Amino acid sequence: MSDKGQSPGRADARRRTLRTAFQAAISAASVLLVAIPVASAVLHEHLSASHYAAYVAVAGAVTAGATLITRLMALPAVTGWIDTYLPWLSTGSPLTDSDDLGASDTE
């Protein structure tokens, strides 16, 4: 499906949603489908096929949840609410050095 013919905001929201889905899938898969089986093999406890299938399902659920949240956050009503009440999450104004969440006021 192409982004042609869509409004720029809608196309951008779609790209952000797809990027989030990809990032969440990579994260969930790396932990649930690689790290946990490797750790259990090191501990000499092999995963059964049903346990591995459960990890696949959890990875899918994590990916779907992250994708849904990203899509909801792209809705105009949610964006407007964020701009009003959570400006530090707003996409309209990038963080500056003084807005850095990790900076202390004593510097």
Score class of each variant (00 low, 15 high):
52 Y>G: 05
89 L>S: 12
73 M>F: 13
62 V>K: 01
78 V>T: 07
65 G>I: 02
77 A>H: 10
64 A>I: 01
62 V>E: 07
71 R>F: 14
34 V>N: 01
24 A>C: 10
71 R>V: 06
5 G>L: 00
87 P>G: 04
94 P>N: 10
11 A>R: 08
75 L>K: 15
41 A>R: 04
96 T>I: 04
62 V>A: 14
33 L>Q: 02
39 A>F: 03
66 A>G: 14
42 V>Y: 10
28 A>C: 01
5 G>Q: 00
7 S>C: 08
104 S>C: 07
82 I>Y: 00
90 S>N: 04
3 D>L: 03
41 A>M: 05
94 P>T: 11
18 L>D: 10
74 A>R: 11
69 I>K: 07
105 D>H: 06
39 A>E: 08
103 A>G: 03
52 Y>P: 02
10 R>D: 13
17 T>M: 08
34 V>H: 00
40 S>W: 09
5 G>D: 01
8 P>I: 08
73 M>K: 15
44 H>E: 07
23 Q>P: 06
20 T>D: 12
105 D>M: 08
40 S>E: 03
41 A>Q: 00
83 D>V: 04
55 Y>Q: 07
47 L>K: 05
64 A>Y: 04
69 I>V: 12
1 M>I: 07
45 E>R: 09
51 H>M: 15
42 V>N: 12
41 A>K: 03
87 P>M: 03
92 G>L: 09
55 Y>R: 09
23 Q>D: 05
19 R>K: 12
80 G>N: 07
88 W>K: 09
3 D>V: 03
13 A>N: 11
99 D>F: 00
61 A>V: 07
70 T>D: 07
97 D>H: 15
88 W>C: 13
50 S>K: 06
105 D>V: 00
14 R>W: 08
83 D>W: 00
19 R>L: 06
71 R>Y: 13
48 S>Y: 05
94 P>D: 09
69 I>D: 05
80 G>H: 14
55 Y>A: 08
19 R>C: 04
29 A>T: 01
10 R>K: 15
14 R>L: 06
30 S>F: 04
50 S>L: 12
79 T>S: 14
52 Y>V: 07
83 D>L: 12
48 S>G: 03
47 L>P: 02
27 S>R: 08
77 A>F: 13
82 I>V: 09
9 G>A: 14
72 L>W: 06
2 S>R: 01
61 A>C: 01
70 T>N: 15
56 V>F: 03
103 A>Q: 05
63 T>R: 02
11 A>M: 00
35 A>P: 03
5 G>I: 00
66 A>Q: 10
104 S>Q: 09
39 A>C: 02
91 T>A: 15
60 G>P: 01
70 T>I: 04
41 A>V: 00
87 P>S: 01
37 P>W: 14
18 L>F: 10
97 D>T: 12
37 P>E: 11
4 K>P: 13
98 S>M: 11
57 A>I: 06
73 M>E: 15
26 I>T: 11
84 T>Y: 09
70 T>L: 05
4 K>Y: 08
98 S>R: 14
23 Q>C: 09
52 Y>Q: 02
30 S>R: 08
82 I>R: 04
32 L>P: 02
84 T>V: 08
77 A>I: 15
20 T>A: 15
97 D>Q: 14
18 L>R: 09
83 D>I: 04
20 T>C: 15
50 S>M: 08
39 A>H: 09
48 S>M: 03
46 H>M: 11
12 D>G: 12
17 T>L: 09
44 H>F: 02
25 A>N: 08
80 G>F: 10
86 L>Y: 03
49 A>R: 07
25 A>S: 13
